[in-house]
Structures are given as C-alpha cells and as structure tokens.
Design a protein around this nucleic acid. Sequence first.
DNA 1: CGGCAAGTTGAGCCAGGTCAACTCCGGTGG
DNA 2: CCACCGGAGTTGACCTGGCTCAACTTGCCG
Lengths: 262, 262
Amino acid sequence: MNSESCPLKTQPACRCQTCSSQTDPGGFCRHLTQCQLETLKTRSRWSSLLRGETIKSEDLLIWPIIAISTGVLSFQQLLEDGRKIIAALFMRGDIIDMRGLANRHHGHLIALGKTEICRLSPRTFEAAIDDNIDARKVAWSSLRRQGNRAMDHGADLAKKQALEKLASFVFECRHRLPDSVSDSKVHIPVRRLDLADYLGMQPETVSRGFKELQARGIIGIEGISNIEILDFPRLRRIANGDKHTENLRQTHENHFQAATGS
Amino acid sequence: MNSESCPLKTQPACRCQTCSSQTDPGGFCRHLTQCQLETLKTRSRWSSLLRGETIKSEDLLIWPIIAISTGVLSFQQLLEDGRKIIAALFMRGDIIDMRGLANRHHGHLIALGKTEICRLSPRTFEAAIDDNIDARKVAWSSLRRQGNRAMDHGADLAKKQALEKLASFVFECRHRLPDSVSDSKVHIPVRRLDLADYLGMQPETVSRGFKELQARGIIGIEGISNIEILDFPRLRRIANGDKHTENLRQTHENHFQAATGS
DNA sequence: CGGCAAGTTGAGCCAGGTCAACTCCGGTGG
DNA sequence: CCACCGGAGTTGACCTGGCTCAACTTGCCG
C-alpha cells in the first residue's frame, strides 16, 4: 500500500460542523454539552486518510480513541505467511476504543478509501463519559454494536458458503449505510479485494458470487460499487442459509429437489 | 437437547460468597460497595443450568444482564436448514449484556455444560455503573474484551485452516481459563461437537486435527477434555498461520520445502 | 495513450465436508 | 454387578466447493 510510513497530517478538530459524529442523530459529539464539546474540540485531532494508509501503533498509543466521520477503516491482521485478514470494518459513526490493543500483535487500522477521522483526546473522552450519561450510553451502545456485529460476522464466516456470505454482506452494508435515495440500492464501500479478505474468501470467488446472484436475477450490478436488490426475499433467504428453497446451484437443481422431495 | 422448555429454577442471589464475580480479582461484584452489593444481591437471581438448557427469550427480556460464575455459555444461531453456529463462548467472569438482542433472531444462549449464572437486575446494574467508576471500568473492559475476542475469533474463522484454528483455540482456552496446576496443561471446556460448531468445522475434522497435532508431538491428549502443550513455539507458529516453517503436512513436506527454497 | 492494479474468466486440484460404519463411555435398570 | 442403550467421538472412503494459478479484460491515473 502507499505511503504507510508518512506521518499523519493532523490539525485540531475544527471540522465539527460537518462531522457525522455531530450531525447524525446517534452521533457521539451531538450528545455532549457545549462546554464538553469545546474542550474535546481543542484537544482532539482531525485527520484525513487515503486508501492504504495505516494508523501507526505509536499514534494509537497516544490517540487510542477514534471517531469515524466518513469512509471505511479496516482492522486487519497479517498472518506470518502473508495471508491478510480484515477482522472488522469501521464506518461512519463508529467509535473505536483501541486502548490496550495498540502495541500488541492484534492488528492494524488501515483505511480502505478516503476516510476522515477524529482522534479524540482519551482523557477528555473519559471525562465526558464520566460526566454525561447520554454520551456514556451512546459510547456504550456503539461498543456493544461493534461486539454484536463481530459475532454476527463470525457466524457468517463459520459455516456459511460463498453466496450466503455475500448476501449477508449486502444486508450489512444496507443496514450500516442506508441509502437516502432508494431503499433497494446498496453502496458497497470496499473493493473486491478487501471484501474477499473481510469475508474470508478469494477475490475470484467474490466475483463469481456476485455474477451468480446477478444471473439468478436477485441483484443488479451497477458499476463496481453499487448494487440493487431485485428480489429481496430470496436474498434474505440466501443470507439466512436456507438451502432447501433457495441456495442451490442451477446445475444441481434436480438433484437437490429430489432430495427435498423425500 | 434436554428440558429446553422447563422453566429456570431460580433463587435470590445468595451465592455471592462463592461466586467468581465476587472472588476473582477482576470480578465485577468485587468492585461494588457493600451497599451496592446488598441491593444487587436481593434484586438478582442465581440459576444453575445443565448442558443443553437455553435461556429463554422472555427471560432475557426481563433479565438481559448475565454474569457467569462458572461453566460455559454459548451464543448460538441456527440456520434455516439446520446448520448450527456457535458465535461466541462466554466463560467465568464474563458479563453479558443482551439488552436489545433478546427478541431478535440473533441467537440463543445455551449452556454447554453445568453452568452457574447470576442474572443481574438491569436497573440496579445500571445504577451501579452510573455511581461506581471502578465497576463501570470493569464492565466496560469486559464488554471490550468480548468484542476483541469476537474479532480475533472472526480472524481465525476467515482464513485459517483446520490445524491453525485448533491451535488458536488451545491458546484461547489457556488464556481464558488459566490452569492453576501447570502452565502447559489446558482444559478444553467444551465437547468436540460444540467445538466444531464454534470453529466452523466438522466434528470429524476436529478429531483428525487433534490427532495430527498429537502425531507431530506438539500436544499430548489426556482424556477427552485435557491436553498438554508439548511444543509451545511450534503450536504458536501454527496458530499464527506460519505455513512456511510449520504448518505443512508430512506428506507434502518435500513439495513445500522446495517452494520455500526458491 | 501507455502503464499498472483491480477485476474477471477458465481449468484443475485439494482441504475439508459428507456419509457410513465402528468404538467408546457414562448412565440406567433388571 | 452386568447387559443394554444412546449419544459422543473416531476412522475410512469418497466427493465437491472454493482455492490456486494463469491468462485475459477493464478501469483509473498521469
């Protein structure tokens, strides 16, 4: 990836006006008092990352709390032999607490596209959490959502097959980044390559999977990063792993139908 | 599974003296004041679960906060076609917050053996969290550890192969349930069948995997649920996915070694 | 209009899933 | 105390979904 070693260009958090943590209904900063916000603002750091840029461990030691305004940040691990794993995706509105994880071999935070983040002053964040029940609840539920998402994602990875993982991912995107224009259009905010690493499969398989869903008339593909859900219930059934009714290859149809008939 | 429909036998939380949440150094209840503990005690419910018993959704609605004293609780999903997935394991000391997850299709909490839990009064729990900074920090870090664990587990599931997942799981057990007697002995607190569901593989593959590790002299197997780590570094390397040096089948050895020589 | 990375397509192969048979073991009742 | 039973675990044989490798196309950026 590019420019991993170049230091982050940072500036005091002056973008609060347009930051989603401030503008979105469930955003963290929106729940702070004016005074708390001012303090947090002056002590936090705004940065903009490009695709492939890594937040360095030494930065994470000082700034372990990160709020994502726009874009996608990945938490990835590199196996000794080069296999890459994206263990989690963080998007708009997520608050990441990396305290204690920075120095370990756990993984790295890497941007998957242009990403705008605000690195919150941990001390001020902690103080706000202590004083402000609303802010505390927002942070707590963000953390809990991350955990639940990780568990759901683990479930996807554990026993689902390629098509089912893809279907599941489409719903995850739809849920996390609701499209303001149309209910059935879904924006895929990551490249195929990264998607493969996130879903534990090969880019080739991702490609074939989307093509298969398209061939069955379940989704429409519009460019590389936008799809349209054409058959909602069938996609839902595939995502839920309902093999008997939906998740069968055309070529095996007769075989499986015979089996279900018994 | 047995007696899923039988109502939980409960009693007021009178076991605090011996509960790990009270006796263990990092336990939640240990950080409460005497007064808070008394209140929580009278409003919470102790129960003991046997293998296969499910905590019902309606119970979770009223008692969504659960502290595990001993045993193992699994969070599992059932795919439409019968595939079972264990998305997470909860053990001694974990505090589970199921608020908002009870009624959904997310999953069920099922005991994997004799498990003793304390269902905390959510209101009192919340009050303790609000008043007591120490207790808040313990709960927060427990939640965060669950999330991190779920991400690590997801990483295992995504790209690791059978042997690597098993090695990784051995370390997870060692880390979560340290053996007081010996550093190299590890207790596996779940059956092979459940382990398979947790690691996203088949029981047959689990069996073959352990046998392979034993054949290579990396672990020793003592009974069904205890193993001994004989070669720590090699097990570590396998868990970390270091194919080049360790994770090769005997039969493929020459092939892979030729490849690394290039 | 090149140059390069991302994405796609095709052919072949293998790790692990599947199925069936067998052993092991704890619990139960005669 | 032993015979029996059922579920868990293991072993072997076979099969397949998705990985691998290689070639090709597409799309982005200067």
